[in-house]
Design a protein around this nucleic acid. Sequence first.
DNA 1: CCAGACGTTGTT
DNA 2: GTCTGG
DNA 3: CCAGACGTTGTT
DNA 4: GTCTGG
Length: 218
Amino acid sequence: MPDGWRRWTESDKVELKGAINVADFNDEEKLGKADAMVRRSPAGAPVLHLLRWGLVPHRSLNPAGGPRPINARSETVLVKPAFRDAFLKRWCLIPADGFYEWQTQEGTKQPFFFSDPQGQVLALAGLWESWRAPDGGLLRTCCILTTAANAQVAPVHDRMPLILAPRSWATWLAGPAGAAQALLVPAPVAALRGWPVSHRVNRVAEYGTDLMAPVAAG
DNA sequence: CCAGACGTTGTT
DNA sequence: GTCTGG
DNA sequence: CCAGACGTTGTT
DNA sequence: GTCTGG
């Protein structure tokens, strides 16, 4: 592992909240001073840094008003103006205990939580942008890449985050010009486990690891 | 050329 | 900024 | 994605 | 029904 790197630790897991949740990533009190994401530094060495959830394009006039996409399709990221520049220059890894997907069943939506079978924190492939505020401050934002669901997630939903195994982290952060293109694929089938969770997860105000707890479906 | 959009998920 | 649509 | 709102006046 | 906010 290169200088400046470290694996996600248990404290990361605690501080970084459970899974992808917009409210969490935008709530500075909940995030505290935790560094939420790994990104590549200008010098090339990966560093931990806080990025805010929801990509604000560099050209944005009003970050509060315009779209702030939280997902970018890996299949089209290179040809979409909104993502192309970030895809070519600004990569990050976004730690998450897991992610939620919703299964549509006869008019209802059942949320599921997916995570690493050994409970390790996942690294999601992300892009980031830097936006210069009128007062001179920088707003750094990010989004994740999505890909087709693997065989485990597919029964629930046809899309899922792009998950990178530790051995691929360096390649991703080195940039998609090279082998990173090959990383834009669904996770291996054995890489995830999933179960139904409470509908409480639907409320962005709800927060905490208890949202990941298994419940009976329905 | 200019004007206007620029993203994803989902789909009863 | 850069792409698409007209 | 889901939850929750769904308005107007005036001002810069 | 459709839009915005999180």
